[in-house]
Design a protein around this nucleic acid. Structure first.
Lengths: 265, 265
DNA sequence: TTAATAGTGTCTCTAAGACATTATTCC
DNA sequence: GGAATAATGTCTTAGAGACACTATTAA
């Protein structure tokens, strides 16, 4: 669990080529706030680039041949190794001040990477971040560092370290968007095992919403959506009554994802 | 009403300079879907560039010194002459296919504008549009054509002409976003005269939502939000009972804009 | 039997939705 | 008086929210 590697999805040459190649759109990037859930904890995947004291959310540039959605998916796959994660665009951020940081100057950039890049290069202009959030079960993930990253780690959303640029605001807006999302769409398919218990999904909702929910009302309302199927199996959890297992009714789940639903928790 | 002019906010030299200057961010633009309401009609402000058969929503590039919000506001001010309009970012659009149009090729571009621009220039790469919508009362507006625009006009949202690129989808998403917005925030300050009647705001809501609302329930729910103040004056409307005039309670209106509210119409 | 957790039913109260009559104005 | 529009009250019903007891398991 919580494995970490610097893997072959990254190469130094590849990263270096970004700044000079004609492969990428200029002045645009995607940021992807990767939320990880595991046993009542909601965390976010953060990086600390080498030589910096501050952390960043995962992100990347957009290739001229791919859409912004594809770029966000590529970021998630590169960092987590998992494809087909649920992700959602929620806002774009763009102000001239947003990429100003005393630790990121052309001089320090050169010092850090060994690359000679003119101070008038477009990467020192401000860029617009199209921001997404992604949901995953973090115990399934082997996180991948890039060559310029000193650390990559899951951080609890209520104990965030110092963040670079406006990334604190981006995370806070991502969480707001997720909390609105959860009232209008089903959540959980990527966050729970295939078979799970009512207390497990109850905990998931409480964790994401950051508040406790009455179990009787929660169950009544969740079952009323029709997205769950009760199985006849139970899970043994020691010296306690064994909870029943449930599965998502994938057809109804997908229909609810597409058409929306409303549950007032 | 519905005036039109080519005014000094535009100049040909200025427009030409966009493509070569270092003043703008590359591969990013803002699109601003300007909705205009007047007497039970919801319209959108569209342009038809000279030499094209298709129409576009208003938009523009982003200066390196301004935020995307400022760019969207600048677009609205330039086109309508009005400042302080309500506007809202709702989504960003970015796929390699989105700016492909058989009428927009480097050759045709040169033919149309007389500008020699290399086919590898960044304006022929795809760009990401950060999309906003703006609300205004269209009888107050004097619309402004740019030097490359052959026509500018308000078009009813259910009778849109052929639109360039993905602008049909952008308008459709803007309308969806506006309809969700109207359930969570007050709407009307920029769309109604200072003093207005209940039937007038009732029509506004019916027009935006595209459905009829029971007047008794509508009044009850709208008054329950507290954003309206009933005046003792009435408006004379001919051989009918004179409706009372109302004003927005600006303090409560702004608080509701900031904190959100919920009204299920 | 005890300790821990799972599972579930009922009451109250608010508010959404459906619905029709009276009031005002001017001709 | 008639024609047009404004204004408003009540009933029903669905569901949100508050609340507590019984069932199961294994030590």
């Amino acid at each position: 669990m919580n494995k970490q590697s610097t893997n072959s999805l990254f190469s130094l040459d590849y990263e270096k080529s970004i700044f000079n190649s004609e492969e990428f759109l200029k002045n645009v990037a995607v940021d992807n706030v990767i939320f990880g859930y595991h046993e009542k904890e909601l965390k976010v995947l953060l990086l600390r680039p080498g030589g910096y004291s501050k952390w960043t959310v995962t992100g990347g540039y957009v290739k001229k041949t791919e859409s912004i959605d594809e770029a966000a998916a590529r970021v998630a796959i590169t960092r987590t190794g998992l494809s087909n994660l649920f992700f959602q665009q929620f806002r774009s951020f763009g102000t001239p001040e947003r990429v100003k940081d005393p630790e990121l100057t052309p001089e320090l950039f050169t010092e850090r990477t060994g690359l000679q890049i003119s101070a008038s290069h477009w990467i020192f202009d401000y860029y617009v971040s199209v921001a997404f959030y992604t949901l995953t079960e973090f115990s399934l993930v082997t996180v991948n560092k890039g060559p310029y990253d000193e650390e990559i780690a899951w951080k609890a959303i209520d104990q965030l370290p110092d963040l670079m640029f406006d990334h604190k605001e981006i995370i806070s807006e991502a969480l707001k968007a997720l909390r609105i999302h959860i009232y209008h769409y089903p959540v959980g398919y990527e966050l729970l095992p295939e078979k799970f218990t009512l207390p497990e999904i109850h905990n998931l909702y409480e964790t994401i919403l950051g508040k406790s929910l009455d179990s009787r009302n929660f169950t009544r309302k969740l079952m009323a959506t029709g997205i769950l199927k009760k199985l006849s199996e139970t899970r043994s959890i020691g010296a306690h009554r064994s909870p029943f297992l449930y599965k998502f009714d994938k057809k109804k789940y997908d229909a609810a994802l597409k058409n929306g639903m409303f549950v007032a928790f």
